[in-house]
Structures are given as structure tokens and as C-alpha cells.
Design a protein around this nucleic acid. Structure first.
Length: 307
DNA sequence: CGTGTTTGACCGGCGC
DNA sequence: GCGCCGGTCAAACACG
């Protein structure tokens, strides 16, 4: 279940205004950064000291966050292995012991993987990487797990598209109501979306997409027409997109303010079918990657220098 | 008044 | 054939 063996997890970190991680060795980054204060005059010593102090504080916070993220990833991996073990022991049994409809069970090879029906690599059996999927032949089905506030009952998943709610049901295997949406951006668009809270974790909303949009993402159109509105998936300002060459991740650490003229603002969501497992896998690799840490330090320092 | 949401009714597939 | 269940419809309603 090592996704990095199936996919290219190399990251295209879009960290503006400095992409120093590509051009400058990280040691040099850090030394440059810490020597910033020395370049200033003696009169600026106080402000320099404050800056260094703030930098240390930010670094400590960054370290703490990194440790938290690492711990979260470890917990997740533990849970995932438990789930896989459980499913191995109970082949054929799903989260719902009740009978499954034919159409749904045909899609449930994705459910076994737990996260995303559009996932290219997350199955325990390596066959999943090779065998063609039924839902790619018929209606494309994918799942997106979105972390929300537990108190938020709106069942709204922001993915950049416009949705019209046409129904709501309480299903048998989940006390939370399931909401049904149709894509309302284009009348001919066949895409439907089901949104329901996870039975295990009420703070997680599961959005199931059926079909493919026959129109571009409205938020992308907005972005290209001058609006810099940032569409986020859940509350995480990062996105992952699946391409033939592998996924790329864009971390918008500059909150779209400082990335003004370097390039056209990248659409935040290339597809609603963001494989959450990949995001988490990437998060794991990120936390272990010293290059990423150096780039993060550079990004923060760049942000501070541009104040 | 137009648009979107809510919600009970209805439909069709599936298992028994 | 019957009942269960998920999915969809459409009238009523809310809101700007």
C-alpha cells in the first residue's frame, strides 16, 4: 500500500515570491536568512533582534506543527492498516452489512480502498493499478472526503462548481441525512453529487461525484477572467491534481497576495476528485522531506521580508 | 417575482 | 408478488 511506488510524488511547490529551494542550497538559505540582521546597521539592531526572535518563534511553531502533522499521519496510517486488516479478515463485508444494490456494488471496488473511487493506486491488490475500472467506462464515480466543523450541518462542499440540491434522504446505514445535488452551471451537465457525513466521524463530509462535467470549472473561468477568488477544498489551501505524469501539489503559502504578477493564478481545483489519500501521503512525504522544510523556511522568510 | 431549498410522495431495482 | 431501500420528482415554501 505504498503509493509512492505507484505514483510520482515529486512536488511542484509553488512558493512565491522566492523559489529558493530550487536555486539555492538550503544551508545557504538558512545562513542567508540568519545573517540578514548582521547586514543592517547598529541602529537597527533592536528591530533585527525582534525579527530574529520572531523567526525563532515561527520556526518553533513550524516545528511543532510539523510534529503534529507527522503524528496525525502516523495515526492515520495505523488506522488504515487496521482497516485493511479488518477487510482482509472479512472479505466481501462492507461497512454496511445490509444488501447492496447492483449498481452500487459495481462501484464498490473503490469503496474497499476506502478513500476515492478515482484513485489510481490505493488498493491493496496491485491489480487495481492495471485493470480497467468499470466506472471509467460508465459514469465516473469518485469520492472526496472533506474535513469540516462538526457543528456545521450545512453539507456544503466547496469545489468550485455550482450545485442545485434536489433531494435529501436519511439512509439506513447512516443517521446523517444524505443530500443530492445536480450541477446547475450547465443545464446539460450530467454530473450529480451526493454529500453525507461520515458515519464514523461527523466532522468529515463525504462527497460522491457521479459523471464528468461537460464544461469548465466556473471558478477557473472566474480566475482567468481576473478574479483571484481562492476556492479551497474544505479549509485546506492546497490542491492536488492528477495528471498523466503524476500528481502535483500547489501550496499557496502566500495567500495569493504576493503571487501577483509572477504567473496567471493557478486554478486551485483541477478536478473535484481529489484523492485525499494522496494528499495525506504527500503530507507525510513533505514532513519527512528536509528540502520542504528548507523551502518552508525560505517562504516564511520571504513573506516576512516583503512586509 | 425569480430562484433555490425543503420535504413528502413516488418510482424502480433488488432480495426474499 | 411483496416489502425494503435508494434515488428522484415536484409542490410548497423561503428568501432576496
Amino acid at each position: 500500500m505504498d503509493y509512492s511506488s505507484c505514483i510520482n510524488t515529486s512536488l511542484d511547490l509553488n512558493i512565491n515570491p522566492l523559489r529558493v529551494h530550487e536555486e539555492v542550497p538550503k544551508k545557504q538559505i538558512e545562513s542567508n536568512f540568519f545573517s540578514l540582521g548582521r547586514k543592517s546597521s547598529v541602529k537597527q539592531e533592536e528591530s533585527t533582534g525582534a525579527l530574529v526572535e520572531e523567526l525563532r518563534r515561527v520556526s518553533a511553531e513550524n516545528k511543532r506543527l510539523t510534529e503534529m502533522l507527522t503524528e496525525m499521519c502516523e495515526n492515520y496510517n495505523t488506522l488504515r492498516s487496521h482497516l485493511m486488516e479488518y477487510m482482509r479478515k472479512n472479505p466481501g463485508k462492507e461497512s454496511s452489512p445490509s444488501k447492496k444494490r447492483k449498481s452500487e456494488s459495481s462501484n464498490n471496488n473503490s469503496n474497499l480502498m476506502g478513500i476515492n473511487g478515482n484513485s489510481e493506486s490505493s488498493s491493496t491488490d496491485e491489480e487495481s493499478c492495471k485493470k480497467p475500472r468499470e466506472e471509467t467506462v460508465k459514469a465516473k464515480i469518485s469520492r472526496v472526503y472533506v474535513k469540516t466543523e462538526a457543528s456545521d450541518t450545512s453539507l456544503i462542499v466547496k469545489d468550485g462548481y455550482q450545485w442545485r440540491k434536489y433531494g435529501q434522504k436519511v439512509t439506513r446505514d447512516n443517521p446523517s441525512p444524505r443530500a443530492y445535488f445536480k450541477c446547475s452551471f450547465a443545464p446539460s451537465c450530467p454530473v450529480k453529487k451526493k454529500v453525507q457525513r461520515s458515519v464514523d466521524d461527523q466532522s468529515i463530509v463525504v462527497a460522491t461525484y457521479e459523471g464528468e462535467h461537460n464544461h469548465p470549472n466556473p471558478s477557473q473561468m472566474e480566475a482567468t477572467s481576473g478574479s483571484s477568488r481562492c476556492v479551497t477544498l474544505g479549509s485546506v489551501p492546497c490542491s492536488a491534481s492528477m495528471s498523466s505524469s503524476g500528481p502535483t501539489v500547489t501550496l499557496d503559502l502566500t495567500k495569493s497576495k504576493s503571487s501577483k504578477d509572477s504567473k496567471v493564478p493557478k486554478p486551485k481545483i483541477d478536478s473535484p476528485e481529489v484523492p485525499q489519500i494522496l494528499v495525506e501521503q504527500m503530507a507525510t512525504s513533505l514532513t519527512k522531506d528536509p528540502n520542504f522544510r528548507a523551502a518552508l523556511v525560505a517562504a516564511i522568510s520571504g513573506k516576512m521580508l516583503h512586509k
